[in-house]
Computed example of a mutant assay.
Amino acid sequence: MTRLIRSLSDTPAALTYPEHGSTLQGPLPRGYAHLHLTVPVGAGQDVFETAGEAVTAWRMHRASGAQVRADAPRAAPGVRLEVSAGAGPLRLRAPCEVIWARYEERRIGFGYGTLDGHPECGEESFVVDLHDDGSVWFTVTAFSRPARWYSRLGGPVVPVLQHAYARRLGRTLARLAG
């Protein structure tokens, strides 16, 4: 497997916020913009397993148009990755580290936190749940605030773009799992 940059795991970058794991344990910390979006993905065990695999193996992000380079093929605590979009000098790079991952009977997902160089500061999680009625739901939960001049310049547009991207991920996951 190609290693990210030299290897993100070998890079001494640190998480850029102190509230590690808040997208799993809650509550979301004050002083950040919050995002919580839940969308239906489908129904049944097969849809749940396919969606969980698409989320934790980076397939959902890639299929939504982002590039993902990671130190591992699946989400696990400590895995470093870079999510990017755009082209050439306009490519926006977002280095992250997986903070937590869950591979449970009715819940699959992970949360990652921002590293130095990320345009935002905070944490985001991507979780697939299988409900008692057999329905499968995808949830994005995040807290963030600007970390770079250009994300501060974006002001109120940044949360709108984040919410639009979360909706896009939900649509992409429903398509992949269906």
Rank of each mutant, 00 (worst) to 15 (best):
V39A: 12
V39G: 00
P40Y: 11
P40H: 09
P40E: 12
P40V: 10
V41I: 15
V41Q: 02
V41Y: 01
G42H: 05
G42F: 05
A43D: 08
G44S: 08
G44A: 08
G44V: 09
G44T: 07
Q45R: 15
Q45V: 09
D46E: 13
V47L: 02
F48Q: 08
F48R: 09
F48M: 10
E49A: 14
E49P: 00
E49W: 07
E49S: 12
T50E: 04
T50R: 15
T50Y: 00
T50F: 00
T50N: 02
T50L: 07
T50C: 04
T50D: 01
A51H: 06
A51T: 04
A51W: 06
A51V: 04
G52T: 03
G52Q: 06
G52I: 05
G52Y: 08
G52K: 10
G52F: 08
E53K: 14
E53L: 12
A54D: 04
V55F: 09
V55H: 07
T56G: 01
T56I: 04
A57P: 00
W58T: 01
W58N: 01
W58V: 00
W58C: 02
R59M: 03
R59E: 13
M60Q: 12
M60V: 06
M60I: 03
M60N: 09
H61E: 15
H61T: 02
H61P: 02
H61W: 13
H61C: 02
R62L: 07
R62H: 03
R62N: 00
R62M: 12
R62C: 06
R62I: 08
R62V: 09
R62G: 01
A63R: 15
S64T: 11
S64E: 04
S64K: 10
G65V: 05
G65Q: 08
A66T: 08
A66K: 12
Q67P: 00
Q67N: 05
Q67E: 07
R69C: 04
R69F: 00
A70S: 15
A70F: 06
D71R: 03
A72T: 03
A72G: 10
A72S: 14
P73S: 13
P73K: 08
P73Y: 07
R74E: 15
R74S: 13
A75C: 13
A75K: 07
A76W: 13
A76T: 07
P77I: 11
P77G: 11
P77R: 15
P77E: 03
